[in-house]
Amino acid sequence: MSLSVIIAHQLVNGLVLGSFYALVALGYTMIFGVIKLLNFAHGDLYMVGGFVGFLALSAISGVVGSGWGGIFLAMLLSMIGVGCLGVLIERIAYHPMLHAPRLSILITALAVSLVLQNAVLALTGGQYTAFHTDLGFGGIHLGPIFISYNQMVLVATAAGLMVALEFFVTHTQYGRAMRAVAIDHDMCRLMGIDVSAIIGVTFFVGTALAAAAGTMAGAYYGSLWYFMGFLIGLKAFTAAVIGGIGSIPGAMLGGLILGLLESFGTQIPGIGSAWKDVFAFAVLILVLVLKPTGLLGKSEQERM
């Protein structure tokens, strides 16, 4: 294969991977924006989203089939269900801790992540669950480059969700309130904004995006596992940091950059796929050291 073909292939792979990272990173960054919490459970909500999408598809595939139509419907159901789970988690675990020291709330988030992981572990027995779909293997050839329809639908769906989110955040009252809450809770209260309701909405939207990514990833890769949220959670965080944490366009950009970096990084001789994850963490540490505010983030001096 010539170099340009390899580059084109990795570009496609990177876009697909980057779409997943971006969707998960968006939730990270939104939740961080409103309550300044790194929601360690976010990656696990992506995993739960995959499983809920799988269950929903199994339930409805008899009626609508398990092509993209069925998957879209399952994805919507998963987004609603897991979005509510996200709100529930916020109400039960994070809400009482909002004014607690940061160390406590971080450990609480870790505990939530462990509860989700181990609940799914107990339910599935730690086995991989096969995600059966009939998506087919069709695609188009652009010269020597092959792009499957699945990849195109996936990237388009992710892009559609991001456009919808951008509209929600910039053009609706909830979105405006969300941006205000991210700046100053107390001032929002004085202005008559129900801060706690807005935090709930943010959790719903952020978690729903992760659930959408989880369902799509399950359908695309064909399997689910209780631990699949761990790595993507870490990488989505990396993506959010690259873009500048708290910044929504930053999370999209960061996701794409990380996806592309990773798929090209594995092509460098001596790195290879075994070192793929090390590569992502090395990028994370470098960004944090060299430019902790990320590409689109605002400079912020904050201490524990």
């Binding site: 940061r102 160390l103 971080l106 940091v241 090390v278 963490f281 540490i285």
Partner: peptide, 15 residues
């Protein structure tokens, strides 16, 4: 920030 440290240490552990 202290929460960055948490994630970096997590990444370091994995590395």
């Amino acid at each position: 920030r202290s929460d960055y440290l948490a994630i970096v240490t997590l990444g370091f552990g994995e590395i």
